[in-house]
């Protein structure tokens, strides 16, 4: 428990550093001028015309789904890696089966062209 109180103190301390520096900067920096063009979005000198919310490829959603699958798998393997020494060879064989099924899933996704970016 003591360990996590220490960690909490460290997080609070590390919050103080950026806040303090921003306060110093507020005092030292010049005051904002009344030129509106300065606060327009930067687009290499052009006047911005449309909203920044673009339509983006559906590939990004697929990557998010793939990440969920594989990350949950990592979360399932994690307890195995800590205790497999006590459980012996049987646990390793079970992990083999688990990861083997995942590799089949990986091949299926490969064949379905889920990893392609065109």
């Amino acid at each position: 428990m003591e360990v996590y109180i220490k960690l909490l103190l460290i997080v609070i301390f590390s919050l103080l550093i950026p806040i303090g520096m921003i306060l110093i900067q507020k005092i030292l920096s010049p005051k904002p001028t009344q030129n509106e063009n300065k606060y327009l979005p930067y687009e290499s000198g052009e006047v911005p015309i449309t909203d920044a919310w673009l339509r983006y490829p559906v590939r990004f959603y697929i990557v998010a789904f793939l990440f969920l699958i594989f990350d949950i798998e990592v979360a399932f393997i994690l307890p195995f890696t800590v205790v497999f020494k006590k459980l012996g060879l049987f646990a390793v064989i079970e992990a083999f089966v688990f990861i083997f099924i995942l590799l089949i899933g990986w091949i299926y996704l490969y064949r379905k062209k889920a990893y392609r970016w065109e």
Binding site: P41, Y42, E43, P48, A52, W53, L54, Y56, R59, F60, V63, A64, F67, F70, D71, V74
Partner: peptide
Amino acid sequence: TKYPVLGSLRASAQVVSYEI
């Protein structure tokens, strides 16, 4: 704005892929 939105779209997919 446009450049940062594109940058963070790329960043999110990239970080997610290399996390595993």
